[in-house]
């Protein structure tokens, strides 16, 4: 019986668990900060937008500008909330999936690659929401989203999706091999 056939769990490397727990801690701190510093964060974002009227299409007419500012502040807040939610969830996804990879994938190189992709993708992806929020005041809604998308969401999200489907393939393969044996 090989290690992959064993009916017990194998623990993933410690650095993986540290990254996962750090992601969950960051999410908790983010959630707490959002509640505790809501006014300060909103003021910071609003001041940043007022300092760059052309970026946000502000025209100097209060009725028009307030609507634009409100929409941007809703997105700013949504980015922080999505970071909180995704970092908590992805921390757990890293723990669960890396444990499966450590247990099921017999080839060391493949196991290391999948675990690295799951960990980097899972921990990096939520940071994109922080980047998005942080860039809204200085770069505007669309440009900040594009930057976060290509800098963080696409590479890290792709890493997670590819690694998850590969891992599902490894598990299916392990099931087939066990049936044949």
């Amino acid at each position: 019986m090989t290690e992959a056939d064993s009916a017990t769990w194998r623990v993933p490397p410690r650095w993986v668990l540290l990254v996962a727990v750090l992601s969950i801690v960051a999410a908790e701190v983010g959630g707490g900060s959002m509640a505790r510093f809501k006014v300060e964060l909103t003021r910071w974002a609003r001041d940043g937008m007022l300092a760059r009227p052309s970026v946000h299409g502000l025209v100097g007419v209060r009725d028009v500008d307030e609507r634009i500012l409100d929409e941007a502040l809703v997105k700013f807040d949504a980015g922080l909330r999505l970071f909180h939610m995704h970092a908590e969830g992805m921390g757990l996804v890293i723990i669960a999936t890396s444990m499966v990879a450590a247990t099921v994938i017999p080839n060391a190189a493949a196991r290391r690659t999948i675990i690295a992709l799951l960990t980097a993708g899972g921990a990096g992806y939520p940071v994109g929401y922080l980047v998005w929020s942080a860039l809204i005041p200085s770069h505007g809604l669309e440009r900040s989203k594009t930057i976060a998308e290509w800098l963080v969401w696409v590479p890290f999200g792709t890493a997670t999706i590819v690694a998850l489907w590969c891992l599902a393939g490894f598990v299916a393969w392990a099931m087939i091999s066990r049936r044949r044996a």
């Binding site: 017990t8 769990w9 998308e149 999706i161 599902a168």
Partner: peptide, 28 residues
């Protein structure tokens, strides 16, 4: 050592996670 569930159960959980991730990316 801690016993693990059958691979079939693990596979369903993983496929759900992978589908959830993929749907999120598709939505965006």
């Amino acid at each position: 050592p801690v016993r693990r569930p059958p691979l079939g159960v693990v596979l369903v959980a993983l496929v759900m996670l992978a589908l959830g991730e993929t749907a999120g990316a598709a939505m965006s």
